[in-house]
Structure formats: structure tokens, C-alpha cells
Design a protein around this nucleic acid. Structure first.
Lengths: 217, 217
DNA sequence: TAGATTGTTAATCGATTAACAATC
DNA sequence: TAGATTGTTAATCGATTAACAATC
């Protein structure tokens, strides 16, 4: 039996838009139990053109019905499948400071397939402490854990100064992707994916926005 | 005296790229003390075309020198000025759970002009506790604080279910921008800026990436 | 049926890249 | 001077939007 979802190559921006639809439609279904949604409705709420919504949905193989729209469940399932939320993959958190601790006890990762299976820190005084059900290990154990538990992702919540060093260790240990929460650039070999979650980009946008509005005012 | 930096309207993507240059050049200066940098060098490290780098720098009024490149200090200062990092503005954190606590004690906001001046929570048992030097207040105090301390930004670190309600309260209290860390969409009136810091978008990208690479393998 | 909404092709728009003269 | 690098115009590319026939 063929999969309902065709193989697709999605752009970064498309993934972001799909997540937007995903949230929006899931919320709609939860709160008002709607069965169907039109591209126009989605477009209005996410403030974009309805054609683009239809294009995006067509790209992931969802078909709508004229006069009716799209089945909410079909859209949500298609996004779920295309983005691979049903697959399980494992990650480790490196750097158990405030941010790392918060991440370690966050329960929302599993919904998208990510299981955090170990915590690491550079500080020897933290060894053995427990966060979110996992013991904190020394970085020297990283290669072993990555290999034995088939870890794909290293979540970096270390200070900016330590980020490159830790990234190198994670890459050497064999992770396929880095999820970087440190405010710094990282250089990694080709083939390793890096997702930067720079809080400073958000800050920059806010700062710029407020400057603009005060300039205009 | 005219400002050295012309008034500019920057796109979201441009702000993001500028931050990338900003980090990269600052790091270079710190570690190797370089005085100048060429568009080609920047381009290589941030993996884009050098023409685009020159366009971006031209847009914020930085001029380079043929055969030499751009003065690092000039670039960093121009970005600093255009994005308004020198201006002070105030924010409040609403929702002092793990994430909110981590944010409350984060020292990196000031570098970009943001000062966190108050914490709020819905939980009456948290009232009076202190995080990052600020006492936790009930949400009922929000309008007063926003007015008296000229608060521009509300940082939302509440659970997704509470996000819309809290957003409404913040907008009613008069903030100009919301910085949303809850995994949910928000609807706000026109004129209020929302920056979503959806961790689930990052998760979606990782999930999709790992799915793709396992499909190809 | 009539009409709203889809799916898709064509047109537009903007962003990126190529090319190259100007310049230090 | 020779040549590397800038600044900028022109060309390309891709993404968004408009238009509209197909369809339920």
C-alpha cells in the first residue's frame, strides 16, 4: 500500500508555515470541534494569502473539497506525517544551567518525537544530580551514550564561550544535528545540521521594532 | 549634526542576517583582534553570497574600502545603532515557571537594551517570591506597572492554555509588543507586535530533517 | 441549479546573484 | 602600477499573488 503522503522537499519557510497551520487547526478542533476548514479561514488567521495555503497543503498531498474546504484531521495528520512527528528520535542536553534545567523538565518534546535520554555538564560538582528524570553525566561519557542509545541530536544550553568546544565534542561523538541555544555562531563540518535558537535575534527584532515605532511617533 | 546612519526599513530576514554578521564579527574581533573584514570573508562564514552582504551593509550606511574591506568596528556600531541596541526599554515576564525563572535570571538582555523590571504570575502561592532580583506580582498589578514604569514588552512564559488570556491582559495594560514563548498562536489587535519564539518550530525542523536523512539513507 | 471554494496556470513581485566599472 | 575589493546596475531566480476554469 502506498503512503498517502508523497515524498516532499520542503523549504525552511514552508516547515514554519505548516507548523503555524498545525497549531492553529489543532486549537480550532480542540476548542470548537470544527471538522473542516477553508484555505481562506486559515489564511485570515495566519495573515497570508489563501492561495499560498492551498499550495502548501497541495505540496504535502492534502486535497480539499470545493464548497467545503479541508478536513481538519486530514491536514493535521498530513503535517504530522510529513514532518515526521510520529518517528522517535533521541537527544541529549549539554549544559544543565537554568536554561538546560528548564529544558530537561519540559514535557513537550515527546509530542514531536524527541526523547531526551541524558544530561551532560562540564561542572564536576553537578555530576550525579538529577534533572527531569535523568542523571547528569560528565562530557566524557558522551560518545558512549550517543552510540549506545542512538542519539541524533545534541541540545546545547551551555554559555556562549563553551558552545564551540561542546559542539565539536558532540559532532565527534556522532550526533547528526545540533540544537543551539547559545548566542553564538558554530562552525561544524558539512553534513551536520545546526538549528540556531538565538534569543538575540528575537531581542534584535524587538529592539528594532520599538526603535522604529518611537521614530515614527 | 546628521546621524551617520540613514533611516532604514529593514525586512525581518535582513535583521536576522545583520545579527548573524554582528555575532560573527564581534567574535572575530574578540578572538583575533582583526580590524577589517571583507564581504567575502563574512559571506563565507555565514554561507551566503558576498553581494548580499555588501547590499545589507550598504542598506545600513556602512561604506567599505576597495582592497581593504569594512572596518569591523564600523560594521558592529552601525548594526548596534540601526537595530537600536543603545536604547533602553523595559519588559515584564509573565509566568514564572521553569522557563520564566530562567529568563528572569538571564543577564544577556541588557546588552540589547532590554531591562526586565517586574515578574508576574497567576499562581497566588508564588506571590512575593523573588526571581532575578524582582518580586513576583499578581497579574492585577500589571496595568499599574506598565504605566508607571513605561513597559513596552511583555515576555510570555506561561503554559499554552493561559497564553491568550495573559496576552489580552498585557495588551489591555498597554504594552506595544509581546514576546511569546508559549507554543500557541495569539490573536492581538493591529498595532501590537508579536514575536513568536515557538520551540516547536525548531522541533519540527529537527524532526523533518532527521526524517529526510533517514529516508535518503 | 447557483455559487463557494478548490486546484492550477499565468503574471507579478521581490530577493538573490552575476557582471563589471570604479576605486584605493 | 596592478590587482583585489567595493558599489551598483542588470539578469536571474524563486516565491507570492492574481486569475479563472473545474468541481462539488
Amino acid at each position: 500500500m502506498e503512503p498517502t503522503v508523497p515524498p516532499v522537499e520542503l523549504k525552511h519557510a514552508t516547515v514554519e508555515r505548516l507548523m503555524h497551520y498545525y497549531h492553529f487547526i489543532s486549537e480550532q478542533v480542540e476548542t470548537s470541534g470544527t471538522e473542516t476548514v477553508t484555505s481562506g479561514e486559515i489564511a485570515k488567521l495566519v495573515r497570508m494569502d489563501d492561495t499560498l495555503v492551498r499550495k502548501d497543503l497541495a505540496a504535502i498531498g492534502v486535497r480539499g473539497l470545493p464548497r467545503v474546504g479541508f478536513r481538519c484531521a486530514a491536514v493535521v495528520n498530513a503535517i504530522h506525517d510529513v514532518l515526521g512527528f510520529g518517528r522517535k528520535y533521541r537527544g541529549v542536553i549539554i549544559g544543565v544551567g537554568r536554561m538546560g534545567s528548564a529544558m530537561a523538565s519540559y514535557k513537550g518534546f515527546a509530542k514531536y518525537g524527541l526523547e531526551v535520554c541524558a544530561l551532560f555538564d562540564l561542572d564536576p560538582f553537578k555530576m550525579g544530580l538529577v534533572g527531569g528524570g535523568n542523571e547528569i553525566l560528565p562530557l566524557s561519557k558522551l560518545p558512549e551514550v550517543v552510540r549506545d542509545q542512538d542519539v541524533s541530536v545534541a541540545i546545547l544550553t551551555v554559555p556562549a564561550e563553551a558552545a564551540q568546544e561542546v559542539a565539536d565534542a558532540a559532532v565527534a561523538a556522532g550526533v547528526k544535528a545540533l540544537w543551539n541555544f547559545a548566542s553564538t555562531s558554530l562552525s561544524v563540518p558539512d553534513g551536520v545540521f545546526v538549528r540556531h535558537e538565538h534569543i538575540s535575534v528575537g531581542l534584535a527584532e524587538l529592539s528594532y521594532l520599538l526603535k522604529q515605532s518611537s521614530d515614527t511617533a
